[in-house]
Write a protein that binds this DNA or RNA. Sequence first.
RNA 1: GCUCAGGUGGCGGAAUUGGUAUACGCGCACGACUCAAAAUCGUGUGGGGUCUCCCAUGAGGGUUCAAGUCCCUCCCUGAGCACCA
Length: 827
Amino acid sequence: MKKNNQLRIEKKWQSEWKKKGVYSAKDTVAGKKNFYHLVMFPYPSGNLHIGHWYNFAPADVYARYIKARGYNVLSPIGFDAFGLPAENAAIKRGIHPRVWTYQNIRTMVTQLERMGNIYDWSRMLITADPEYYRWTQWMFLELFRRGLAYRKKAAANWCPSCHTVLANEQVVDGRCERCGSEVVQKEIEQWLLKITDYADRLISDLDMVDWPEKTKIMQRNWIGKSEGAVIQFSISNFQFPIKVFTTRADTLFGCTYLVLAPEHAFVQELKESIRNWNEVEAYLVQTRKKSDLQRTDLAKEKTGVLLQGIEATNPATGKKIPIFVADYVLTGYGTGAIMAVPAHDERDFEFAKKFHMPIVSVITSHKNPNEFYGGEGTLINSGKFTGMSSEQARTAITHFVGGKQQTQYRLRDWLVSRQRYWGAPIPLVFCAACKTHIENPKPKTQSSKLYSKGELLNPGWIAVNEKDLPVTLPNVKNYLPTEEGKSPLAHAQSFVNTTCPRCGGKAVRETDTMDTFMCSSWYFLRYTDPHNNKTFADKKKMKSWLPVSMYIGGAEHSVMHLLYARFLTKALYDAKHLSFKEPFARLRHQGIILGPDGQKMSKSRGNVVDPDNLVNEFGADVVRLYLCFMGPYEQGGAWQPGGIMGVERFLKRVEAFIIQKPARSKLKTPLVVKQTYYQTVKKVGDDINQLSFNTAVSALMICLRSFEEASYVEPELRAGFVQLLAPFAPHLAQELWSGALGCKGYISNEPWPAVRKQYLQNSQVSIVCQINGKKRAVIEVPAGSDKETVLTLARTNEGFQKYLLDQEVIRIIFVPDKILNLIIKPR
RNA sequence: GCUCAGGUGGCGGAAUUGGUAUACGCGCACGACUCAAAAUCGUGUGGGGUCUCCCAUGAGGGUUCAAGUCCCUCCCUGAGCACCA
């Protein structure tokens, strides 16, 4: 009966809030600062799971608190609707991705509404809507125009199950992030975005934002900046030198051989001079067969082949050194070639031992010849550089051999094209006439004026005119991915054939779609002005809200989404579309909720907790409160099925206490109760501000207990308590506010209760009395009592004084309001 | 292997940054109400003992009047990265 009542209350207020638009955000409110509170928008997977609740419900507690602190809060929600996960799920069920996605969105909106969050539903966006992806395409074109998008044929990560290429970030342990299939390398033409141009700024601007240090570290590691030098080694009978990248130019005198990656162009170019070509070729074939997973398996022994017939010269020593090809050298990093210094590098050491290469030690600290020494030190065996420190020698030797300082990044450009149906089409066409025109410009025409930077960079690829956006995703019947590495759109003739926006001739459309991370890289901009059809968002509106004040979402996005969004923001900043360099001023991650068995929730394990059932049984307020109370928000943990009863009891006690009419007597609220209340006001606020929801709830429980035991609690305090509860249990709080408390309006519009400083300190405090550091008594004294007073009281305390008989006090430690410690020894 | 979090009762977890370890909640036990049960309320609940005490915050050392908190050595769990020269 009671539970039905709670559900009734929730429904009632939710429909009233919706009807009256209580939570719709105005772009400016006089006298209030704007606060943009954002959660990472979900993709339409089907149903809200408990993880969504854990992300969104406590985040809403924070948003409601910020609102109560006098901010004008924007808290939007939407759907990351394009992309592989939704498409794969739809295909599995034999449903069209569009049907599947929009059906899921309807379900999830209903579920989200039951959470009772302060979302401004009028701003809801769906990235698969043409009104939205029109601007995603515009974003792509903006990057294209600025020369930040380019087409390239190269080996890419190919998921044989999803039939598409993947970005580096989407390959986890050599497997597809989405379906878990082993990723293979495939030569294919694709579009990339020059995120590497921003590598340095993506590192340095991390200093501007309030993010978890862990996330910053992960981004720095992913970008992987390292400073070193490129050094050239000349080769016998070959005009070009081999260039290597090294961070340890100081060890050049210890370099006893070179290694080329199997894909290094020189291997083929030197074919004529290589005497054992058959052996080398066999090795190349063998390497190509290996998957990335096999190639990067650290446990395996190093392999490689000596290139017979050619030699390199160590530019420092002048000595001839052999050259190997080996797959422990990666083609995509640095120059694809290394100088091997076995004495001071673990991998080279391992390889040298296997292939009996000389190991020359050039750092003094290298003591044990059976091991490598990877550290720095003073140089030996290094000609005129002997005696120098590693640090000095790095520059000196680089200079001596004519090397060049260089900074390398591990970050690769962002591969954005997908050979899949369910995404925003890349708004480009290919025009053969324009290609010829660009590649063979007639002397008098100024093709640079006719074509944008992106078009000159990618001859033949022409941007669709802005007025013709969006390039609508056709509603084709055949949306299944194809084996041959082409998007299913390639078969839609009416889509493919078009005219060139520049020359008006025949042209064909790009049929790849964009990585869904492109859609999610800018959605937070759109929320500030979601219905604008002139531009992606009005500058004034963006200025009033952005950058995002608080962004809450899963840590799994630490490198993908968060890096891409930062990149796009910087590119748009450079293009003067934005006035800020970093999109998310403050970022926090919620933890992960595991199943009751402590394992990751999954249908196959049968340990999935369904929030719908919980809400039906307990109501949203109880679920919200329990998610807050479970444990530290940023830590997460296993779902404890029993504990939810505790918060349910608490809410019932709150209701019972508030509903019960206070005695009409002239009684005063006891001082200790007032003190507890005001301390609770402060603590709950401070705790929510730090996302320490569990301790905030605990404080509310303590406060209620104190109220229940009091002879009288004045109305102001009773109402104040309900206000403290309101962010956690907004429906019950509103019901009590309008009902039993007889207050007007919406409790969510009320300011946070005031703190009265005079009550923050208890008037009586407990002082622990210790003898030699051991607790022997606890005495109650007025707050602020001085040492003499406390000492006198302690000496008269029966349990305490007996320890002082026949003892000499040699030291007294006194911390006001905390502790008294007497150090004694026998007299 | 490297980096970052963590390790506190039967369980989830607190601990104002060096000052009463185990707040709050779950569970459990006993009691009240009830014919009875559920619900609710009350009391108790780290371990031990010779019951004016001793021992306990992953293990072991150290600093300090005082250590969950600081330092050193090690063990375990989780997350991320991983042949990046």
